[in-house]
Design a protein around this nucleic acid. Structure first.
Ligand SMILES: [Zn+2]
Ligand SMILES: [Zn+2]
Ligand SMILES: [Zn+2]
Ligand SMILES: [Zn+2]
Lengths: 165, 165
DNA sequence: TCAAAAGTTGTTATATAATAACGTTTCGAT
DNA sequence: ATCGAAACGTTATTATATAACAACTTTTGA
C-alpha cells in the first residue's frame, strides 16, 4: 500500500521543491560537520528520500525505493537505523498518527514536533509557533506534570485544498 | 512484552479504582441504551478490560486476557472489532504514540483526546477542554486549516512520580 | 605504525500491531 | 416464520519495527 496515491504536494511556491531538498541536505551536512556526526551515504540518501515531498513517508516506502535503486533488496534495519540517526539529531520527525517520517526544516533549533496534516493532499506542515507549546506547558504545569515530549498532530484540510488561496 | 510491568497506577483517591470501572460501565450501558447501540458481552468485557487501570492497554494485551479467561484463544479481529465499536462511540480513545487504548471518562461529550502520559507509572490522564484546544484551533485558523482531529499526547513525569504529591 | 575500541552496515530471524476475506450465527423488524 | 443487517468465528495476510550477531570501517591511542 503506497502512501503516495494522492497528487504530489502543491508546495514551494517561488522556487520549486528541488530547492527544499537541496536546502535540507546542505543544512544537514553543515549541522553534522559542526557536531562531529557522520552523515554517511545511506543516512544522506534516506534523508533525501524523506525530503522528496512534504508528505510523510513510511519506512517501508523508503525501503522499497532504496531496494529499487540498489538493484538488491535492502533490509528493514538499514532504513530504521538511518531513521534513528536522523531522529536523534533532529533532522527528521516521526508522525505517530501515521507511522511515517518527515524532514525537519529547522534542525538547528531544538523543538517539539507540531504538525498540521491534510487528509486530502497528505502534506504535513510543521508549526513554528509556540502558542501550542505554551498551552501544553501551562496546562501541564498546573497539574504538576513535567513535560518531556509533545506529540501534536492535527488532521484536517489545508488551505489550498479548501480553495482558500 | 507486557505493558503492565510498572506498578499499578496510584489512582482514584477516596474511592479505589473499582468505582472507576463501575462508573464507566454504567455510563456506557446508559449511553448505548439511549443511542440504540448494542453493547454486546464482548464489547462490554473489552471496555471493562480497558478500564482495569488508568494505564493505556495494547490490543494484544486485551486479546491475551480474553483468551485466558475463555480457555480458548481469541483472534485479533474479535478485539479490534470491539475496540472499533468503542472508539466509534467515544467510549475509549486510542493513543497513537503508544499503540494503546484507554477508557474515556466523559463519553457523552464529544471532544478531542488530549493526554498527559507518565513515562514512569504509565498512567495517562485525559485533559478537559482547555487552552490546548484553543491554541490548536487558533493556530490552524491563522493558516486557513480546517481542524478535524487532534492528536495531543504529552509524555513526561506526573506529579505523584515527581514527589509533588 | 599498528592494534584496540567504537561505530556502521549486512543479514537473518522474529516481534508486534492491524486488517482482509468469508462463512456462520444472532438479532430485530416485518 | 422469514428476511436482511449486524455481529461473531476463523484463517490468513499485511504492515511496522526490533533482536541478534557477524563483517567491515573509522577513529583513537599507544
Ligand atoms: Zn522540526
Ligand atoms: Zn491539502
Ligand atoms: Zn475522552
Ligand atoms: Zn507517574
Amino acid at each position: 500500500m503506497s502512501k503516495n496515491i494522492s497528487p504530489p504536494a502543491a508546495p514551494c511556491p517561488h522556487h520549486g521543491h528541488q530547492a527544499c531538498i537541496e536546502q535540507a541536505l546542505a543544512t544537514a551536512v553543515e549541522l553534522c560537520n559542526r557536531g562531529g556526526l557522520r552523515l554517511t551515504p545511506i543516512r544522506k540518501r534516506v534523508l533525501e528520500l524523506v525530503w522528496q515531498s512534504h508528505q510523510p513517508l513510511g519506512a517501508y516506502d523508503i525501503l522499497a525505493q532504496l531496494s529499487a535503486e540498489d538493484g538488491r533488496p535492502a533490509a528493514p534495519p538499514t532504513v530504521y537505523r538511518a531513521l534513528d540517526f536522523l531522529l536523534d539529531n533532529g533532522l527528521i520527525h516521526r508522525l505517530a498518527s501515521l507511522n511515517a517520517f518527515i524532514g525537519c526544516d529547522r534542525p538547528h533549533q531544538a523543538h517539539q514536533g507540531h504538525f498540521l496534516i491534510c487528509r486530502l493532499c497528505k502534506v504535513a506542515r510543521e508549526l513554528p509557533h509556540d502558542a501550542i507549546d505554551e498551552a501544553v506547558e501551562q496546562t501541564a504545569a498546573e497539574l504538576g506534570f513535567l513535560v518531556e515530549q509533545q506529540v501534536v498532530e492535527v488532521s484536517g484540510v489545508c488551505a489550498p485544498c479548501r480553495g482558500h488561496a
